[in-house]
Simulated scan of single mutants.
Amino acid sequence: MNDLRTRLARLLVEKSYREGDFTLTSGRKSDYYFDCKQTALHAEGSWLIGSLFNDLLGDVPVVGVGGMTLGADPLISATTVISHERGRPLAGFIVRKQPKGHGTDQYVEGLANFAPGDPVAMLEDVVTTGGSLLKACERVEAAGLRIVAVCTVLDREEGGRQAIKAAGYDLISIFTRKELVDAARS
């Protein structure tokens, strides 16, 4: 797993990590920006992320993974494909920001692959305050699934882990910012 983490860290720093003056989704100012989609949509990056999320979820009893569109979409696809390759197929689901307004008018897509109460993991690309991840968790639970794991590629260590813990979940991250920078240099 360490070799995969090192390879992913180098790719994330090359493709997704930028230093400068940025405004985040939360409205906070930051001296760096992490655009995980650039790496998650890269062939090797997708494979590495899917492999590492499967490693993190190895002993967690889940039948599927999902998260908020658009950031989690490539993470979900990568994780489900790798899970099939490894002989532990996980279904995927996507949480919409708004219900689609027609058809079933639901927030969560992919529910035909699940039974009520099924244990699932939430995936996120980056956690800052945890706000959007917690909103997605509420929608998933309202749809009848049971969240047993919450995972992210990067924990910015800016209060998100604590907010997620206060909501009753533990955050599992592939990297914190320091770990990412350190791993990319190794």
Rank of each mutant, 00 (worst) to 15 (best):
L8K: 05
K15D: 01
Y17D: 09
E19D: 03
E19P: 02
D21W: 11
D21G: 11
F22N: 00
F22Y: 15
T23L: 14
L24P: 12
S26K: 02
S30Y: 00
Y32T: 06
Y33M: 09
D35A: 13
Q38H: 15
E44Y: 08
N54L: 12
G58S: 14
V62H: 08
G64R: 03
G71P: 03
A72E: 10
G87Q: 06
G87V: 07
L90S: 03
A91Y: 01
F93Y: 03
V95F: 00
R96Q: 08
R96F: 11
G101C: 01
T104R: 13
Q106I: 09
Y107S: 07
E109D: 09
G110S: 10
F114T: 06
P116G: 10
G117V: 12
D118W: 10
L123M: 10
L123G: 06
D125W: 01
T129M: 13
T129R: 02
G130V: 07
G131A: 14
S132T: 13
R139S: 05
V140R: 04
E141V: 08
A143L: 04
I147Y: 08
A149C: 09
L154E: 08
L154W: 06
L154I: 14
G160M: 06
R161M: 09
Q162R: 10
Y169S: 04
S173N: 10
K178A: 15
E179D: 13
R185Q: 15
